[in-house]
């Protein structure tokens, strides 16, 4: 069971309090109707499946209820950093 720091509660807590919520920084297009079929397919289904540092969303579902972002190393399964929605991680850009 990994440990997750909720950036809103600022507390390191067991994974049980949280729920994984998919890859991070996939913004919903401003105007979905303007998207091509291919672009919309990519938005819906295409994910990076990274080996190494992966930016992903978590929710402190049994705590404050907030969604936030995390950078997790998928090799060691350790969360390197967590940061609030719309913030940039200390470790780099919000891409990916």
């Amino acid at each position: 069971m990994i440990q997750v720091r909720c950036p809103y509660c600022d507390a390191l807590l067991p994974e049980q309090e949280f729920a994984y919520a998919g890859q991070a920084h996939i913004a919903r297009p401003e105007d979905p109707s303007a998207e091509t079929d291919e672009a919309w397919r990519d938005y819906l289904y295409i994910r990076s499946n990274t080996r190494g540092l992966h930016k992903e969303r978590w929710r402190h579902v049994h705590g404050c209820g907030r969604f936030f972002n995390a950078i997790r190393d998928t090799v060691s399964d350790r969360i390197q950093e967590t940061y609030r929605m719309f913030e940039t991680p200390a470790g780099g850009s919000a891409d990916e």
Binding site: A19, A21, A27, R28, R59, V61, R66, F67, M85, F86
Partner: peptide, 13 residues
């Protein structure tokens, strides 16, 4: 409720 919270917090804050 989770889906509502998700959109409210992350898409339409």
């Amino acid at each position: 409720l989770t889906m509502m919270e998700d959109y409210l917090q992350t898409e339409w804050p």
